[in-house]
Design a protein around this nucleic acid. Sequence first.
DNA 1: AGATTAAGTGTCATTATTGACTTAAAACAG
DNA 2: CTGTTTTAAGTCAATAATGACACTTAATCT
Lengths: 335, 335
Amino acid sequence: MKNIVLFAADGAMASQLTGIIDFFMICNRFWQVTNNQDTDLFTVNVISPNGNNITCDGGIVINATSLKNVALPSAAVIVGGVSYDDKTLTKYLTKISPLKQDILKCEKNAVPIATFCSSTFIAAEFGLLNGKKATTVWWLVKIFTQKYPQVTLQLDELVVRDKAIFTAGATTSYLSLCLKLVEELFDGQLADQISRLMLIDPNRCSQRPFMLLDLPERHHDDLIKKIQQWMIQNLSQPISLDLLADKFATTKRTLIRRFKKVLNDTPMNYLQKIRVESAKRLLECSGLSLEQIVLKVGYEDVSSFRKLFVELVELTPREYRERFQQSINANIIEG
Amino acid sequence: MKNIVLFAADGAMASQLTGIIDFFMICNRFWQVTNNQDTDLFTVNVISPNGNNITCDGGIVINATSLKNVALPSAAVIVGGVSYDDKTLTKYLTKISPLKQDILKCEKNAVPIATFCSSTFIAAEFGLLNGKKATTVWWLVKIFTQKYPQVTLQLDELVVRDKAIFTAGATTSYLSLCLKLVEELFDGQLADQISRLMLIDPNRCSQRPFMLLDLPERHHDDLIKKIQQWMIQNLSQPISLDLLADKFATTKRTLIRRFKKVLNDTPMNYLQKIRVESAKRLLECSGLSLEQIVLKVGYEDVSSFRKLFVELVELTPREYRERFQQSINANIIEG
DNA sequence: AGATTAAGTGTCATTATTGACTTAAAACAG
DNA sequence: CTGTTTTAAGTCAATAATGACACTTAATCT
């Protein structure tokens, strides 16, 4: 029997804890029913800093214990708190830090350790991710890269594995993470069956399409889709038609023709739209200076970018940044 | 401020309750952060039969109250229990039935009512779905149609709406359901932002691809994909090459060529594989007689189907059922 | 058994897509 | 402002996909 331990502290998100607990409970039930057995495949134990019960954000109380009271873990999941920014992250980090020794002990014993959403910060803070590949939730990426430059973020995967460390993306990705653990600790067939039972898309692989941009052009040209994805992921470097044609094993002429066909736009013009959209997003969601943003989305010159921005958005970047929240206000209050 | 009430009873699945609670809490936080406000958009109240706290399956206790103690609901969600078969369904139904009057009151007051997974049974039992369109979790479909023939199941949607009744599919579909409620009660823009934040695929629309078959051929031919999908959904009727060519505005020759290219198979041969796969699934998961199954997957003649089945599966249908119903989900569907 | 039907193959003219080349227009640097 | 570079568009030959049609094969019906 596999023992899964969940490391968590007061302020954890209840649905993430119960979600994981229920996930493995469903695995057990399914296994029992399909194999006519009574034994459980998995046990789940919640481990809290002092071994006392955990009061989740929202007040729900979850039974917890100490690591020394449970069987040797087969896998450990660190469950994060409700974290939106540096402050709330730090607060939860303080609460969970008494568990650092326990977590490091797991690592030393080669117990697979999994994190998702904001709990990846905890793993990074404890040094588990140094020199490793990982992913985290897209809206905390900026803080993450600032704090933990030694970690290689790989945002285009929903679940990233590096040796015995599994990391996953935003809130609901714990389901994919659990599937991965079932596959790892048990077998792929059960994982497959559970994914059908619970309706978890096993092919969901990237957070990236979610985090971006209001450019939802629906079309069926696979090549162009790939190029769009690639553009978004490589904005900061210079992109030329020749480069694209080379990279995707085609010709400039074909690129232009097919972009026009499915997006009714030329490749470079579309790229520009992506750059401006990305800049808008960064203006909305990040504290980066305009210059940093301009560099990030692949321009060298702030002033020419500003001109372009004004032309397309009809606001200066500064105005846009100021207005964004106001305009959302307006929309929502009307609704 | 919108008040969401969750109707639940002892034995509810904790992660579903907390999942919905946290979902709307995240909406609130997100709204507050992006708008610099203190007010909540949503409150969530759990309503139990006697107003006492609810002990979920697994022992977690959730605060609950009575309907009379809370503000007029803007929407109601019925949360189901951990239900695998008729027996567990009935057990939970008994526990939640004292809430019937409250739920009917909501309906009378035109409060939108939402159900998902097994809780759709509760709505059906209370008569809320008579003559309406609905969906439920795919592995309880058989029991559902037996018990509630007055309800039109629409399984190819993940969330189905008919007037003020929303129904959704399996376990994790409550996220899509919540998104729909946000859109309904508030606005689509917030729903869109939350879907990105929580990484809920807003385009996930059908349970159907999940419930089926071990035929995961990956290719990039959109037309053939559509045809595969359509085949699966229309197995019971006779399908000919001419029909397909006509329906998908192409020619027989092209169909054959493209099937061969991406699936390395001819259209009719592939269709046969689907039919046999579906029959296998029905043998595993349903109590239907072989004759019923044979009809359902589109054959007229049992004996020729049996011959075919033996040839491809190397077991007679009966042997197959014995072998796999035992080891796969005997009790789940038959109860 | 022989006729009938539908699926699949072979072939070829038609059409659509591509790549090479050229030209025009725009963007950029000095 | 001018010369240079890059992108986009026009043209046409080469290539690939398609549709029409004739034909083979396998299964079905009488």
